[in-house]
Design a protein around this nucleic acid. Structure first.
Lengths: 135, 135
DNA sequence: CTCGATGCAAAAGGTTTGCATTGAG
DNA sequence: CTCAATGCAAACCTTTTGCATCGAG
């Protein structure tokens, strides 16, 4: 069942903006981006709605990069790569798919009683753009 | 070459405290823990020294859990499991070791020009203590 | 004595929250 | 009309920083 009760243009705009990009945006980026079209959109509303989307499973939190939580609208579990220079996040195309699948089992976390719900794999490195800059 | 220039009792205490625990502590925990022994230890000093230790490679930042950055004094790369209920972090004992190794290569991140420096794998779930609580 | 290390408090960000107002059904 | 959604601003928390003081070499 949905957490959301009523319909709202701003809520729609926030979700659509996040679905339409591959940037794995944070709240601030979404807000700044939408302000152009919706000048009276408040940052608080962006945060509140992102929170709801996450609860509904429409968005997946990726983790904090440079102090800001980032989100992915493509909710099927998959690894990411993060540029430690500029914070860019990309989906990892086809990362040893078979191997990763074998790591997905309930017991992948090893013994000790943890009930593993999900896994996150992140590769950290420098993206092409940043390595061109000579850092 | 070392980042640190001078010797200090407080700095030593901070590092020793973090090396002596398997909790993967955050700055606040270290500070609170040491205050008992060193009443005039300031939180700023804990943050500053942790920052130095990370630069020196003595500590590895694990990521933000519940809004707080956590650190590991065991710097050889290895996966972790995190309790999404209480924030407990544990090393993962022996997680399909062979498989994980095969994911370590420079190209593990897939094509696209990223120069992969390191990888983080985290399993999220509920620890035994929290699942006993019924949550 | 010199310069790095520290305490203290203010500042900086990102995120959350309380409350009055707006708007969807 | 009713209650969810929003704007606004204050509150929160963790982390950083500026500056005067302290302490190691």
């Amino acid at each position: 069942m949905a957490v959301t009760k009523k319909h709202s243009k701003k809520r729609d705009a926030i979700l659509r903006e996040m679905l339409a990009t591959t940037r794995h945006p944070g709240a601030q980026w979404v807000h700044e981006r939408l302000k152009a079209r919706i000048p009276d959109l408040s940052l608080g509303t962006v945060y509140r709605n992102i929170g709801l989307f996450v609860q509904e499973g429409l968005l997946r939190p990726l983790g904090v990069i440079n102090g800001e939580e980032r989100f992915d609208a493509h909710v099927e579990p998959h690894p990411h790569r993060v540029c430690i220079s500029c914070g860019r996040i990309e989906d990892v195309p086809c990362p040893n798919e078979a191997l990763l699948k074998r790591l997905h089992g309930k017991n992948a976390g090893g013994p000790g009683g943890f009930q593993i719900d999900f896994r996150k794999t992140v590769f950290y490195g420098v993206c092409p753009h940043c390595s061109d800059q000579g850092t």
